[in-house]
């Protein structure tokens, strides 16, 4: 594999600098946020490189678990931040995090034990990138689905209550909204699978090919990952929507939208 020197990276960075200068010259006002984002990206990735280097060197279950928990908590925070109207209190954070835990973690551990099956099963070179991809994808799916559920329930509260008045159960009254939310949570991965290889070369496969892996091996890994992501997203979204739609009602089948926070300005 060809390693990149600092000079190579500086050359590429020069392109971004030129773009920033162009933005300043054309008064687009983008240069500031562009440079900050670039700087953040370099610092964050360098740091994670150092962390991964350390963890790969130790290869201990404790360190891998710690890293996994940090990743999970960060993803949970991200899911919460993307909600316009989130559940108040611990639910807002715990719901998405819990759903990702049971889907991403379970599917990743299953894959490590059975399909990849190396020794030890938690070897960080496999475990951490795999979990990262699972979390990244289930995160978007769960965030989109929850946002759709709470927003639609808020907009259609009169309809939900009308259905309750006519004697429908809470499950019947929110069924269509939940199905719609499920669809929007799954759309991303379904589109990604449909477009894979034709419109886009998936990132992981590209990376493996760049690193010198035979294309068919890279493809097999990518297919495995797609299966895992689809299953993980589906289970995670289902769990999150089930819990959240339960939370919107009480045991007397009353719509309790006061469990949602007001949208941010």
């Amino acid at each position: 594999m060809i390693t990149l020197s600092v000079f190579d990276l500086s050359l590429a960075a020069l392109l971004v600098l030129i773009l920033a200068a162009l933005s300043w010259h054309m008064r687009l006002g983008l240069e500031r946020s562009l440079l900050i984002a670039t700087l953040r990206m370099v610092v964050q990735l360098s740091l994670i490189g150092l962390v991964l280097k350390t963890i790969f060197a130790t290869s201990g279950l404790l360190w891998v678990s710690l890293m996994a928990v940090v990743m999970l908590l960060a993803a949970g925070r991200e899911v919460m931040a993307r909600q316009q109207r989130r559940l108040k209190g611990w639910w807002g954070y715990g719901l998405g995090t819990g759903a990702m835990f049971i889907s991403s973690f379970a599917v990743t551990v299953l894959a490590l034990f059975t399909m990849i099956g190396n020794q030890p099963w938690y070897e960080p070179q496999y475990a951490i990138p795999l979990l990262g991809m699972m979390l990244g994808n289930t995160m978007s799916g769960i965030a989109l689905a929850l946002d759709r559920l709470t927003q639609t329930a808020w907009q259609q509260r009169a309809i939900i209550e009308q259905r309750l008045m006519l004697g429908q159960t809470r499950t019947e009254a929110i069924d269509e909204i939940r199905r719609e939310a499920m669809r929007s949570g799954m759309m991303h991965i379904i589109n990604a699978m449909a477009a894979a290889g034709i419109v886009s070369l998936p990132g992981m496969m590209t990376g493996q090919i760049l690193a010198g892996a035979p294309p068919m091996e890279a493809v097999k890994y990518q297919i495995l990952i797609m299966f895992l992501i689809a299953a993980g997203t589906g289970f995670g979204v289902t769990a999150a929507l089930w819990l959240a739609s339960r939370r919107l009602f009480d045991e007397r089948h009353r719509l309790r939208l006061e469990v949602l926070s007001a949208p941010r300005a």
């Binding site: 259905r163 309750l164 159960t169």
Partner: peptide, 20 residues
């Protein structure tokens, strides 16, 4: 009584009806 069953027996007709 379970709430849905109650509401089928005690019907509320709101000022503005909803149709979905």
């Amino acid at each position: 009584i379970p709430a849905p069953q109650w509401r089928r027996q005690v019907a509320l007709l709101p000022v503005e009806s909803q149709w979905w």
